[in-house]
Design a protein around this nucleic acid. Structure first.
Length: 576
RNA sequence: GCGCUCGUAGCUCAGCUGGAUAGAGCGCCGGACUUCGAAUCCGUAGGCCGAAGGUUCGAAUCCUUCCGAGCGCGCCA
């Protein structure tokens, strides 16, 4: 029986007993028991605070706790002040746990709460006028992680990327290139395509300060693009492909992938018909100047325009259309937009407006809003080129990881030096970005992010590598049956308990759309393990029974580390 | 001005959705490698949880007000 079932059964037992006490006191209903985990292992494994029940029964909580313990009369219960705690039979749990982990393997900790649900996750959504920067990296980390977490909860997930390849900002880099490019190409300069195009975007922003007329020229270029001007469209296609090639390389290196791409150059046409239908349905209204509006008073907001007076569409219009189109392409039960918090208003309006149009799935749309990434000395400014470039950052982290491996003389141990260094870099980066709750703004401290010591991704990877290395020295198969009764240390108890809790953490992470639940869990588990492993021999434990039991425990920790790594983009390494 | 989000150790962050003495990492100081990998482990110091009220047996967590920060509030995307 696993921890959850054990808790439920104790809860039922104690509630039943409470009910008996209540009846003798002439009371009928008591509030449901709260189930908690005690802060320290010495206090047991399950805690039931009795404040509310004691109050109704007119007893002090400690008295009630003692009364319950006496009535139930088992050594597993202990009273700690106002709490009635259970110290469960850890060896039984350890056996069940080992069996479950052995049978489920990479799927241990997964569940079926979202089985049969189709969830679309949109993330990344880069512009084609510049390379990925740190902000995109946070977006990508969260997008990949939440997708993995939802899958682990049984959902069928479709990851989609919407490429913003259209608009006046795209024309700015095109304009600068046409004026100052001299026919250079990524090939001729050896510059990665997205950076090449990005350079011209920065150049535009510099030049426009001297020559404000560039603004109008960019607008004119956009008009020409929309009118299908051959020369402009050709330039657009050329520069777009440069950027997209560069982005594809970055995604591959950062292990980010998508099931489907949408392009704004197509989606920008969507939505107009839907808005017009809304006018017919009477959920939107038309002003005298012919513009179309939606009234948002019902959700405490003002009014929002959906079609311009000249009949052309807006950002909101196309997002309406795109959402509808996507649901036709791949009917989903819910959809998650991983987009920075600055667009909260937009999504609030979008979801509400889709509801007005009568789409039942509108209530299942979710904006996974995440905070800004700032630098210790302030904001990033992409127009000024004051950004932490994604490729550069990964490059630098990889270089430092490589140096570390070399200085420790582990080149032979790790096999592929490049690959291992990159894995460590990505582990460091993803962990750094995901350990912060998504809703919060965060400060990215370059000096700190490249540290591989302390509460970092590489620390976790190192634990995985050490366990792997130790188990490789164990000559025999990992035992299938063992005597769990010899695992008597508090840390061993704590490890078993934490491993058993993993599934609930996976659920919580999905419910809250919060990968930081997983990173926090990982650190706790690793910390407990490393202390235990530091203090206690495994292969050289004093008795064969203890060796077996500890080997099983270590291999269980290893499996759970791997499973959790997969949810937060930390590559597993058998050696590093 | 209005709306949303957020104020926790010097710095960067947790805090299991209202419960036990508020925890980590970094940094500081001090310990542990003839021992399964020291990218490790252990210890010391460091807090009026932005402030004041309120609800509650019980508040970092919920409510109100104030202070401070970020982001929104275009027929831009």
């Amino acid at each position: 029986m696993m921890l959850r079932a054990i808790r439920a059964s104790w809860k039922a037992r104690i509630e039943e007993e409470l009910q008996k006490i209540a009846e003798t006191n002439g009371k009928v209903t008591l509030p449901e028991l709260i189930v908690q985990t005690p802060p320290k292992v010495e206090l047991g494994d399950i805690a039931f605070p009795l404040f509310a029940q004691a109050k109704i029964l007119g007893m002090s909580p400690p008295a009630l706790a003692n009364e319950l313990k006496n009535r139930l009369n088992t050594h597993e219960l202990l009273v700690s002040g106002p709490y009635l705690n259970v110290r469960i039979d850890m060896s039984a749990l350890a056996l069940d746990l080992a069996k479950a982990i052995r049978e489920e393997g990479d799927a241990y900790g997964h569940n079926k709460t979202l089985a049969g649900k189709r969830v679309m996750v949109e993330f990344s959504c880069p512009n084609t006028n510049k390379p990925l920067h740190l902000g995109h990296l946070r977006n990508d980390s969260i997008g990949e992680s939440i997708s993995a977490i939802l899958k682990a909860n049984g959902a069928e997930v479709r990851k989609v990327n919407l490429i913003n390849n259209r608009g006046v900002h795209i024309c700015k880099s095109m304009l600068a290139y046409r004026k100052f490019g001299n026919g250079e190409t990524p090939q001729s300069t050896g510059r990665k395509g997205d950076h090449f195009v990005g350079d011209y975007y920065v150049l535009y922003n510099r030049k426009v300060e001297e020559d404000p007329s560039l603004e109008q020229q960019a607008q004119a270029m956009l008009k020409a693009w929309e009118d299908g001007d051959e020369e402009v469209v050709a330039l657009w296609e050329k520069m777009n492909s440069w950027t997209l090639e560069g982005l594809a390389q970055s995604y591959e290196r950062m292990r980010v992938s998508f099931d489907h791409y949408y392009y704004e150059s197509e989606t920008y046409r969507y939505g107009k018909d839907e808005v017009l239908k809304g006018v017919e349905q009477g959920v939107f209204y038309r002003e005298a100047d012919n513009s179309v509006w939606v009234d948002l008073e019902a959700i405490g907001l003002d009014k929002k325009v959906l079609l311009r007076s000249d009949g052309t569409s807006l950002y909101m219009t196309q997002d309406l259309g795109t959402a509808i189109r996507r649901n036709e392409d791949w009917p989903f039960d819910s959809m998650i937009y991983v987009v920075a918090s600055e667009q909260q208003y937009h999504f609030k309006v979008l979801f509400y407006t889709l509801g007005l149009l009568g789409y039942p799935w509108a209530k299942d749309l979710h904006h996974l809003s995440y905070g800004m990434v700032n630098l210790p000395d302030g904001k990033m400014k992409s127009r000024e080129g004051k950004v932490v470039d994604g490729d550069d950052l990964v490059e630098e982290l990889t270089r430092l990881a490589k140096e570390e491996i070399i200085s420790k003389e582990r080149e032979d141990l790790v096999g592929d030096l490049e690959e291992t260094s990159l894995s460590i870099a990505l582990g460091a980066l993803n962990y750094y970005l995901l350990q912060v709750s998504p809703t919060k703004d965060m400060i990215f401290n370059p000096a700190e992010s490249i540290s591989f010591n302390g509460n970092t991704g590489p620390y976790l990877q190192y634990m995985g590598a050490r366990i792997s290395s130790m188990l490789a020295k164990y000559e025999k198969e990992i035992p299938v049956s063992f005597d769990a009764g010899v695992l008597t240390l508090e840390d061993e108890r704590s490890l078993v308990r934490q491993l058993a809790l993993f599934g609930e953490v996976v659920e919580r992470a999905a419910e809250g759309y919060d990968p930081s639940q997983i990173t926090a869990y990982l650190y706790e588990l690793s910390k407990t393990f490393s202390r235990w492993y530091h203090d206690n021999p495994v292969l050289k434990a004093p008795t064969p029974a203890l060796v077996e039991a500890r080997v099983v425990l270590a291999s269980n920790v290893l499996q759970v580390l791997k499973n959790a790594f997969a949810l937060v983009g930390i590559p597993f390494l058998a050696a590093m």
